[in-house]
Write a protein that binds this DNA or RNA. Structure first.
Lengths: 119, 119
DNA sequence: ACCAGATATTGACCTCTGTCAATATCGATC
DNA sequence: GATCGATATTGACAGAGGTCAATATCTGGT
């Protein structure tokens, strides 16, 4: 159920403690969370995220995603890598195609972290 | 109670509809939300946000904030402006001092928008 | 083995952004 | 109204980031 500390995503390790309202984030905590926010703080990547999340079965093939944008294939691949490296997306290769899906846990932790401030 | 459309923050205008899971964000919606995420997607600004949120009465004087960082005063001022321009912070000048407070509504909308993906 | 299609990587370019020093502005007090 | 302290603005610089063309890598079918 609960993972070892070493398996925690950066955001999990911070979100587990307390929302941002209660106690100021340490510099270290801030440096862990910021990259995840940076990953989704881009119009293209936000759309990628919502496209994948709202897609059939919660996963989407890169081929589908490419068509949704007026951008080159390498650029989309680059953005997907950003999201993957940040832990926001998971990927699975099936044959020739690569499928991405949203890592709900990572986003959930972000929401938990920000939720404290929100209300 | 409910504001005119013209008074809505960028995020409100998007979050009012449906979380990112249900339907893909339009390019326009993504361009409205991304800047707000960009504003908080920085270690210094994250700490500023949580410092202000967790401060006495939910507001903090710039003088307090400057001391919490190893950065020049103009740099902190710059970051506060970023957060203010994004609608994440409110500001009030009282005498010589300027007080910032977190705009809970704006952050709440963000959380609502991302919350759909999270669970 | 070869080829064709799907995705990733590299390298280059230009823009955007975080930072500081210097300076400006504003408000209170003497 | 001159001065001082608090905050903001400007200009400059270095580094990060988004984009593309070209190329590489992988996989399935012929």
């Amino acid at each position: 159920m609960s993972k070892s500390v070493l398996e925690l995503t950066p955001v999990e390790a911070v979100a587990c403690c307390s929302p941002v309202t209660r106690e100021p984030l340490s510099a270290e905590q801030a440096h862990q969370v910021a990259p995840v926010l940076k990953a989704i703080a881009d119009p293209v990547r936000l759309r990628l995220l919502s496209l994948i999340a709202s897609h059939q079965d919660g996963e989407a093939c890169v081929c589908d995603l490419n068509d949704a944008f007026d951008l080159s294939q390498p650029t989309i691949s680059h953005h997907l890598k950003q999201l993957f490296d940040a832990g926001v997306l998971g990927r699975e290769k099936r044959g020739v195609w690569v499928y991405y899906r949203v890592n709900s846990a990572a986003l959930g932790d972000l929401v938990a972290l920000l939720g404290g401030v929100a209300r």
